[in-house]
């Protein structure tokens, strides 16, 4: 069947996406990644439903009136309860919500900053470029987690949004370097010259002409940033510096440790397993996208 000529720019883009999806479908590890992601998504959505079925499934306030301490898995509590008699399964669902929230928002903000910096740096060159890239050099040598720890000490308030902001502000460095080098080569292409001759402003050239071409790369890095953000939140919360008003996987492990229940397997194992599988899912998706974006990685 002959491919139809795209009539509009959008149709062309949709066709491009369809083609990419066709290629993605070939990739087994990529499909495993998507599968895991769908699982966690359903899991997270279930977390909103459960407390409405029975308030004892509320992750924060669902103290089971009949259970006052840790209890192993049972019919009412499939994965048992925590130190205060709350359902561990419901807390895991809440953790999935937090992981999505933190991972995606932090990654979107970081990708936006990184892509903009990379585009501007690559397009303008000169002093702007030098200044921005030196900044990146410094950002990349800052010890990530320790900095988040001291910053959270300085800020004092332990809020999930502060954490998202700090993670985003510290993780745009790598992506901006990649986008910059891509911009440098795109800048030499005829279509940029054509746009300039046609009288397009710098901003228009950067965001309308070069921008769409670097988006696949940004998207690729986003999946790795999501992964990093989820792990970072887990670590910070585990250390006791997270947002205590929300139940995340890291907070669960922190409670588990501080109540001296480290060796209670039904409490300690599930949150860590969830973190592992969710980061794995984003890693696998990232690798699969990588193979589409960087053709040299494709299997011959």
């Amino acid at each position: 069947m002959e491919e139809q000529k795209p009539r509009t720019k959008w149709e062309a883009r949709i066709q491009q996406w369809k083609k990419s999806w066709e290629m993605y479908k070939e990739n087994k590890i990529g499909l495993v990644g998507i599968g895991l992601l769908v699982f966690f998504f359903v899991f997270a959505v279930l977390g909103f439903v459960m407390p409405h079925i029975d308030p004892i499934y509320h992750p924060m306030t669902g103290f089971d009136p009949f259970i006052v301490s840790k209890s192993p898995p049972s019919i009412t509590h499939l994965l048992g309860t925590d130190f205060w008699g709350r359902d561990i399964m419901s807390q895991l669902m809440s953790g999935a919500q937090i992981a999505f929230l933190i991972g995606l928002t932090a990654a979107v903000v970081a990708v936006a900053i990184g892509t903009t910096v990379g585009l501007v740096s690559g397009y303008y060159g000169g002093t702007t470029d030098t200044l921005l890239m030196r900044t990146v050099d410094i950002v990349l040598t800052l010890p990530f987690l320790p900095l988040i720890i001291v910053v959270s000490a300085a800020v004092g308030k332990q809020s999930i949004w502060v954490l998202v902001l700090i993670i985003a502000l510290l993780s745009w460095g790598g992506i901006s370097r990649v986008i910059r080098s891509q911009t440098l080569s795109l800048k030499q292409r005829p279509f940029v010259e054509a746009a300039r001759v046609a009288g397009a402003t710098d901003a228009r050239i950067i965001f309308r002409h070069i921008g769409p071409n670097v988006l696949p790369l940004s998207f690729l890095y986003m999946s790795f940033l999501v992964l990093g953000a989820i792990l970072t939140e887990a670590g910070v919360s585990y250390l006791g510096l997270g947002d205590p008003t929300r139940v995340s996987w890291g907070i669960m492990l922190q409670w588990c440790r501080t109540t001296g229940s480290t060796f209670t397997w039904y409490w300690m194992l599930p949150p860590g397993l969830c973190i592992t599988l969710m980061t794995l899912s984003f890693y696998l998706i990232g690798r699969a996208v990588d193979e589409i974006v960087n053709p040299r990685l494709r299997k011959r």
């Binding site: 887990a234 060796f263 300690m268 860590g272 592992t276």
Partner: peptide, 21 residues
């Protein structure tokens, strides 16, 4: 791949659980 994605403190907790406890 698994170790790359595992939170290290959790690996630590498991190691403590198995080898020390």
């Amino acid at each position: 791949l698994f170790f790359y994605c595992m939170p290290i403190f959790w690996v630590g907790l498991i190691a403590l659980w198995i080898f020390s406890y």
